[in-house]
Simulated assay, not measured.
Amino acid sequence: MQRSPIVLLVAALFAGMTALLVIGSFVSRSPIPFVVAVPLGATAYFMYYHGSGKLLESLRRRQVRSRQRQHERTRHARGNRDRGGFGAGPRARGDPRTRGEREARFGVGLGGDGSGSGPTGWRSEDPRNRVSATSSEPTTAEARSVLGVDPTADQATIKRAYRDRVKDVHPDRGGDEAEFKRVTAAYDRLRE
């Protein structure tokens, strides 16, 4: 709590003048000193509240409560978003998100056999063991050279190299979109 002795002294002087005006109002039986004493007393009270540090403490408590409420709101909203919405639950890492990604990864139809048999059979086989329907995916050696990591690099090193490389080639930062896709494909290949 921060105290200000000068403000407290001025508040005490105002309080003393307020008391004298109230006593003078009763002695003279005139309402005019009392009318002057009311705003003077209010000023003395607020100056004391400020000078004693209680005002600052009250403002800090309000700010902390406001931050806690904001944190609760964002945590609650983030909690709903992390679940996937509509009861979908979290996806496994690397699962395709859209129909186009599923078709590109598993074949023409959703069944993976080219028949378009629907979504029931699209997970029947581990996608990492399948040969890509498109030739755009790099080999492991090509992916390592794109990211600039050696064959003994662990997942943390690969991730760090990917993030550093993306900073240079991301289209939002003035990079080339094709190169960005190439780096992302390389990272996806090494992540599997």
Rank of each mutant, 00 (worst) to 15 (best):
G100P: 00
P96R: 10
A104N: 13
Q70L: 10
Q70I: 08
G84V: 11
Q2M: 00
A44I: 04
Y45T: 10
R61M: 13
G51D: 04
A92F: 10
L8D: 06
R93A: 13
L8G: 04
F34K: 01
L55Q: 12
P5W: 15
H71I: 15
A77R: 01
R75C: 01
L56S: 10
P31V: 15
L55C: 07
G79D: 07
N80W: 14
V7R: 07
E72N: 05
L59E: 10
T43I: 02
R105T: 14
G84H: 10
A77E: 04
G89N: 13
F26R: 06
A37W: 02
A44D: 05
F86V: 12
S28P: 00
G41V: 08
F26K: 07
L8Y: 02
F26W: 08
G100N: 00
L8W: 06
G94T: 02
N80T: 13
S4I: 02
M47A: 04
A104G: 11
F46E: 02
V22T: 02
Y49S: 05
A42C: 14
A11E: 03
V22Q: 00
P39R: 06
S4N: 08
R65P: 01
G100W: 00
G85Q: 06
V10R: 13
S4A: 03
E103I: 01
T74C: 09
R62P: 04
V27I: 14
L56D: 08
A11S: 12
I23D: 11
R83G: 06
S58H: 15
R78H: 08
G41M: 09
L13N: 07
V35R: 14
G84N: 12
S58Q: 11
A15E: 07
L59Y: 10
S25H: 00
G84P: 06
A44K: 02
A37T: 03
K54G: 09
R75I: 06
E57N: 14
L20I: 09
R62D: 13
Y45P: 01
S52K: 09
P5M: 10
Q2S: 02
G85M: 06
Q2I: 03
G87R: 14
L59W: 08
Q2E: 05
S4R: 04
R99C: 07
Q2C: 00
G79Q: 07
R60H: 11
H71P: 01
A92L: 05
I23F: 15
D95E: 09
I32W: 10
S58M: 10
S52D: 13
I32H: 04
L56I: 11
L9N: 03
A44L: 07
Y45I: 12
F26H: 03
L55M: 11
E57S: 13
E103L: 02
G24Q: 02
R99E: 14
P96K: 09
S4K: 01
G16A: 11
I23Y: 13
G100E: 04
R78A: 13
H71M: 15
I23C: 12
V35D: 13
V38K: 13
S52V: 05
A12L: 12
G24W: 01
T98H: 08
R62H: 14
L21F: 13
A42N: 12
R83A: 04
S28A: 05
G87N: 12
H50G: 02
V64C: 01
Q68T: 03
R91V: 09
